[in-house]
């Protein structure tokens, strides 16, 4: 897979929000995303995990330009996506699409499914109405919604079916890149599996590059080839998903993985948990040095002062932002 040229390349992306704490106080900067680089190849899913406030959603939204990045570059299929304006930007948008978490909020309640799906086509392509209908029929059967349902409204569908419609809307323009922000988090387990399988199948068929943002590490393990773990706006560990789950290196990744409950009582009884103290610090005043040092059980003086780099571990493709790995005992 790695021989392929990346279809999405993000370099040093920063999203800083300005926040005014009060009229006479200086403006604070919330560093939601603070220097993230990643690459996505066709047919590849990258899982992006982290706790709330780590910047994973801001990163997704910035890549698709729903919010404007403060710094950095985004390259989609060879074009500098951030430099585009007006018509050129509109023409580039079909190549990158998004699926949101809440299928109740992301579909307009006053539009029929036909209208929901026709909107991206009308905005981006000039198609005859027969061609439009053909495309709508095709995508709707691909996501498993009966063709006769196109004249229904979103409220007539269940949560899982709505998410299928939202996926159809994102894929009807045949994008190269799909950003999915917590697409199964609001769904019940039995429906969640359906949607995950649907996304996996469609991704394979359409050779999509997918960024799958989620807080659920078990879900991400099932769907992603590669994995990036974020903490306070920075990627702290990245690499092949299989490798990271087998052998997490960064203390945060280890704690995160050990905190996820596994539906297996005997295993749960025998597990030793790394319980982190405290909660994720505010991204307004992130801790100095390594931003994880306030919760890290292995922090030493150097961690408080020197911000670590995201580096390859022993020459492997696994990247980790912690110079002290060698010192940390293996589980």
């Amino acid at each position: 897979m790695s021989e392929l040229q990346p279809v999405l390349t993000v370099k040093d992306l920063k999203v800083h929000f300005k926040k005014s704490p009060g009229y006479f106080k200086p403006v604070e900067r919330v560093k939601a995303v603070d220097g993230v680089s990643l690459e996505l190849r066709p047919g590849e899913t990258m899982g992006l995990v982290g706790e709330s406030g780590c910047g994973k959603s801001s990163l997704g939204r910035a890549i698709i330009r729903l919010i404007h990045p403060t710094e950095g570059t985004i390259d989609i299929g060879g074009t500098n996506f951030l430099a585009l304006k007006g018509g050129a930007l509109r023409r580039a948008r079909p190549s990158i699409q998004m699926v949101f978490q809440d299928p109740y909020a992301s579909l307009d309640p006053r539009m029929t499914i036909q209208e929901v799906l026709a909107e991206p086509l009308n905005a981006h392509l000039r198609l005859s109405s027969e061609e439009k209908n053909r495309r709508i029929q095709k995508i709707i059967s691909a996501v498993g919604i009966p063709k006769t349902a196109v004249h229904k409204y979103p409220h007539e569908f269940s949560g899982g079916q709505r998410q299928r419609i939202a996926i159809a809307r994102a894929l009807i323009l045949e994008p190269k890149v799909l950003i999915a922000d917590e697409p199964v988090s609001s769904l019940d387990v039995s429906v969640q599996a359906q949607i995950l399988n649907l996304m996996k199948d469609l991704q394979r068929e359409m050779n999509l590059a997918m960024l799958f943002i989620s807080h659920n590490l078990a879900v991400v393990r099932y769907i992603s080839h590669r994995l990036a773990v974020m903490y306070l706006g920075k990627i702290v560990e990245a690499g092949e998903s299989r490798e990271i789950y087998k052998n997490p290196l960064h203390p945060y990744t280890r704690a995160l993985i050990s905190a996820v409950p596994i539906p297996d009582p005997k295993l749960e009884r025998s597990r030793t948990r790394i319980v982190l103290t405290g909660e994720i610090p505010s991204p307004v005043n992130p801790p100095s040095g390594c931003t994880f040092h306030t919760r890290c059980p292995y922090a030493v003086e150097k961690c408080r002062t020197t911000p670590p780099e995201l580096l390859s571990f022993n020459g492997s493709p696994q990247l980790v932002r912690c110079p002290e790995i060698g010192r940390i005992p293996r589980q």
Binding site: Q161, S190, V191, Q192, A193, R221, Y245, I262, D264
Partner: peptide, 24 residues
């Protein structure tokens, strides 16, 4: 049984996730 099988597992690399068809 189906619920347990359709739950993604953190400790296992599952090749397939059998889902429960339909909705409640």
């Amino acid at each position: 049984h189906a619920l347990l099988k359709s739950t993604p597992r953190l400790d296992k690399a599952l090749a397939a996730l059998p889902s429960i068809a339909g909705t409640a």
